[in-house]
């Protein structure tokens, strides 16, 4: 069964579908601009060797997000 979790909890190699953004203001706008709108499929690729940030595959591009930002994106695991 699929569960709701945050992007930063998505294990590298697994994917999720964006459900909602828990960010406000500028951060929210930036995340939207990256294509993180509800329904977007995101694949967690890999973590930096120091544990953070994590690289995600979002709408055809690889984008690294810090844990602080990833926490604000809720996804449904796929």
């Amino acid at each position: 069964m699929s569960t709701i979790t945050s992007l930063s909890n998505l294990r590298p190699g697994s994917s999720g579908e964006v459900v909602s953004l828990q960010a406000w203001g500028l951060t929210r706008r930036r995340l939207l601009d990256l294509g993180l709108v509800p329904g977007t499929r995101v694949v967690a690729l890999r973590r930096s060797p120091s544990g953070d940030p994590t690289a995600f595959f979002i709408r055809g591009a690889t984008i690294a997000l810090r844990r602080e930002e990833g926490r604000q994106v809720l996804v449904r695991t796929v």
Binding site: T3, I4, T5, S6, N9, V19, S20, L21, W24, R28, R29, L32, V37, P38, L74, R76
Partner: peptide, 26 residues
């Protein structure tokens, strides 16, 4: 963390919190 929450609950919570996803920008 919000693990295990099902969708309708989440949607309801968002509605109560005054959901920014309803904003024009989103």
């Amino acid at each position: 963390m919000t693990g295990q929450k099902t969708d309708p609950v989440l949607v309801e919570a968002r509605r109560l919190a005054g959901d920014p996803e309803d904003s024009y920008r989103d």
